[in-house]
């Protein structure tokens, strides 16, 4: 085994993958939220649709998005491998509940991650798949533009359904918990831990864990309660 494969199959190597992919996905979450907040710009979806067009057609973005998909797959795959390996390391014997003062999220990352993965599949099926691979989304024309897909309208339809709204909001709570542990954990795994800066890292992690999910959750809630 070469040094590089041995690194990636070592415990710390696997964790480094989790950390790097996870932190990358957080940057994606930030960008994605900024883009999506155009949905509540109150312009009937013009800015959002143009943004969506740009995001699905720009070659550079396309290239980056392949990386993004790879990151998601790698993060999920590695997460599952770690989960099962850890389960077998722990052995199957019963133990009374440990009440150590640790974050609930920290002990349930695999569960949270799996829920997020399910959400992701549903979410991508709702929008990304329909946008890219079907013609079910109607077209819209703006001044100076060729007709483009009206994804905004698709969003409106989706969030008309209270079931979707509830499941989206729930998923954002799950995401919040996942980030509550994940951000700081990513830094710890990379060894970026220093008593001088730990407070800052922790603070940013908590800030993101609250602000990102709320930002995302506002969209379905806004559509359901305000737009209808």
């Amino acid at each position: 085994m070469s040094w590089i494969t041995s690194f990636f199959s070592s415990s710390i190597g696997r964790k480094v993958i989790m950390s790097l992919t996870g932190l990358f996905l957080i940057t994606f979450l930030i960008v994605h939220l900024i883009g999506n907040l155009q949905l509540i710009a109150g312009d009937g979806g013009e800015a959002f649709n143009q943004y969506a067009y740009f995001m699905t057609t720009n070659p550079l973005i396309k290239f980056v998005s392949i990386g993004l998909y790879a990151m998601i797959v790698l993060h999920a795959y590695q997460g599952l491998v770690i989960y099962f390996k850890n389960k077998s390391a722990k052995g199957g014997k019963p133990t009374a509940k440990n009440k150590a003062d640790v974050k609930w999220a920290s002990k349930n990352m695999a569960l949270l991650g799996t829920l997020i993965l399910f959400f992701l599949i549903v979410h991508m099926g709702d929008f990304w798949f329909k946008m890219k691979f079907t013609d079910t989304i109607p077209l819209v024309t703006y001044d100076g533009w060729e007709p483009i897909k009206n994804l905004y309208q698709q969003v409106t339809i989706t969030f008309d359904n209270p079931l979707f709204v509830v499941s989206y909001v729930f998923s954002m709570v799950v995401l919040g918990f996942h980030l509550w542990h994940g951000f700081g954990s990513g830094f710890q795994t990379l060894g970026l831990n220093h008593s001088k800066y730990n407070g800052l890292i922790d603070g940013i992690g908590k800030f993101l864990a609250i602000v990102l999910p709320i930002g995302y959750a506002i969209i379905p809630l806004y559509y359901y309660f305000v737009m209808r």
Partner: peptide, 28 residues
């Protein structure tokens, strides 16, 4: 042994209160 997911239970239960900062150092 299993893989660390930075839960911190070890640090909380360690009778010598050894900090997980040392884990970060080892990772690095």
């Amino acid at each position: 042994f299993g893989m660390c997911s930075n839960v911190g239970a070890c640090e909380a239960e360690c009778p010598k209160e050894i900090s997980i900062e040392h884990i970060a150092r080892m990772n690095r």
